[in-house]
């Protein structure tokens, strides 16, 4: 009987390994073999500290090519879409911002700027985003104090990475949309665009 139980457990474990291992990401060849594929992660691993309708917490972070960027500098000027992605050189994240990079006009139409944020340091973000081509939007490093901005918004995961989250903030600085997405999946572009359109209605 003990043998039977051990066999059952062994086979179950093996199957779980297969199912987890087989996850598809549709990764671009631009990153070659340099993407670290983690185990399947819990869809979310943090508790939001902000809500729709609240003033968005301000932050000032260094960016890869645009110096220091503050959220407050866009107040009265631009709607802001913040795209937190979990980490550089990981699946899904590597295939998210390059898509936004070809739709600058859609952001422009909605008078919006995009800010990409991860908790990686600047050199890492520099090397990683270089593979994506020239990005039109600033990429910000929330590395030090580690994940400080992500923590203010409640999207810092327990392993020090951030959630895959979208925040849409209007010109007055109020949060109008939050999507803390399943970290293993990419938020569809249309959901961001439809939320931006609502700001202009």
């Amino acid at each position: 009987m003990k043998k039977q139980r051990n066999l059952t457990m062994a086979i179950t474990g093996f199957v779980m390994l297969l199912v987890l291992h087989g996850t598809a990401y549709g990764l671009s060849d631009v990153f070659k073999e340099n993407i670290y594929v983690p185990e399947k992660l819990a869809p979310t691993d943090s508790v939001l500290k902000v809500a729709v309708g609240e003033k968005a917490p301000d932050f000032t972070l260094p960016s890869v090519h645009h110096g220091k960027i503050s959220l407050s500098q866009f107040i009265g000027k631009k709607n802001v879409v913040i795209s937190f992605v979990p980490a550089a050189w990981t699946p899904v994240c590597s295939d998210q911002w390059p898509g936004y990079n070809i739709v600058k006009d859609l952001f422009d139409e909605n008078d919006a700027i995009l800010l990409g944020i991860t908790a990686d340091n600047i050199p890492t973000l520099f090397a990683w985003t270089n593979q994506m081509g020239e990005l039109w939007f600033p990429v910000l490093s929330d590395f030090w104090p580690h994940g400080g901005t992500a923590s203010k918004y409640g999207v810092l995961r327990s392993d020090g990475t951030t959630e895959r989250a979208i925040f849409v903030i209007d010109k007055k600085g109020y949060i109008r949309y939050i999507d803390v997405h399943n970290i293993n999946k990419r938020p569809p572009l249309e959901s961001i665009m439809s939320e931006l359109k609502k700001l202009n209605q």
């Binding site: 671009s28 081509g133 572009l189």
Partner: peptide
């Protein structure tokens, strides 16, 4: 994929 830089190029 729309999200793939090589596909775009």
């Amino acid at each position: 994929s729309m999200y793939c830089p090589h596909c775009q190029r």
